[in-house]
Simulated scan of single mutants.
Amino acid sequence: MNIFLQFYKSLFSPKDIALFRHQGIGKTILYVFFLTLLSALPTVFYSGSAIINGLNAIDETIDSNLPDFEIAEGQLHTEEEVPVTLNKNNFTIIIDSTGAVDPSVLSESGNTIALLKNEVYILAEGQEQTYPYTLLTSGTLTKNDLSDFLASAESLMPIIIPLIAIVIYIFAAGIRFIEISLLALAGLFIKKALAKKLEYRHLWRMSAYSITLPAIFFTIMTALQTAVQNGAIINWFVSLIILLLSIKEVPSHSSK
């Protein structure tokens, strides 16, 4: 059975998921990378859009509208005693060296770029990104330096965006493998309660396919920019239910 048919079957068939315990670990790992690729696509797209739109918005306002500032030793310094807020191209740009602006409040706003006291915050198309200044520079960065940097960064976008996509993908894959491993551990208790002769390696393979339905659901929600309340709980609950149903499909006398 090819990987695409496995993906289709994993969306609704615990019986097929139970059968996948027989396959080699290499094919299961390949499936996890495939599922991770699908689920990471919306995040990659919106993150790339956020960075490009954010650079464009700042570049158009930095010379004429932004107050003079300096980033030194990981902190933003300006002569402004209150936060400065500007609106440009459907983006809200905030300069705040006072520490008065709370990033958690910004998550409820529209497209936003905020140079805060210790970090830069970007919210675009529902995707949040936060970068401490220490990650961006180890020295001093002024308004003019930022203008020059943006000019260079815009020309490097065809390189930067793929690199960001790779980082997001690797991080997402790591989270998937941890999730599957924990789910398989829970499966040990389930198989014991159901008196099924399964080993951890079998449960790991089954867990890799059991997460398909919730993974695709949350991928669609991310693509639609729709927040899901208690998403982590729903994700684990659905995955456990599918794993439970899959374990029940395994004959009690068989471990292979």
Rank of each mutant, 00 (worst) to 15 (best):
L5R: 15
K9E: 13
K9N: 12
L11E: 06
L11Y: 11
P14K: 01
K15C: 01
Q23A: 02
K27D: 04
T28S: 07
T28P: 05
F34Q: 11
T36E: 12
A50G: 04
A50R: 00
I51N: 06
I52H: 01
L55D: 06
A57P: 02
D59L: 07
D59T: 13
E60N: 06
T61L: 08
I71K: 10
T78K: 12
E80S: 05
T85V: 09
T85D: 00
I93A: 00
G99V: 11
A100I: 06
A100N: 12
S104G: 02
S107M: 14
E108R: 03
S109E: 04
T112H: 07
I113G: 02
K117D: 12
N118S: 13
E119R: 14
I122E: 09
E125G: 04
G126K: 04
Q127I: 06
Q127D: 02
Q129G: 08
Y131G: 07
T134Q: 11
L136T: 08
T137A: 07
T140W: 13
T142K: 10
L146V: 05
A153T: 09
M157R: 15
I159M: 15
I159R: 14
I159P: 05
V167W: 11
I168L: 13
I168C: 04
I168H: 03
Y169C: 07
I170G: 03
F171T: 14
I175C: 02
I178V: 05
I180W: 02
A184R: 03
A186V: 10
I190K: 07
L194D: 13
K196L: 10
L198R: 00
E199H: 10
H202K: 04
L203M: 08
L203V: 01
M206Q: 02
I211L: 07
I211T: 09
I216E: 00
L224G: 01
Q225K: 15
Q225A: 05
Q225D: 10
T226P: 03
N230D: 05
A232M: 08
I242K: 12
L243T: 03
L244R: 14
I247Y: 08
I247C: 13
S252H: 06
S254E: 11
K256N: 15
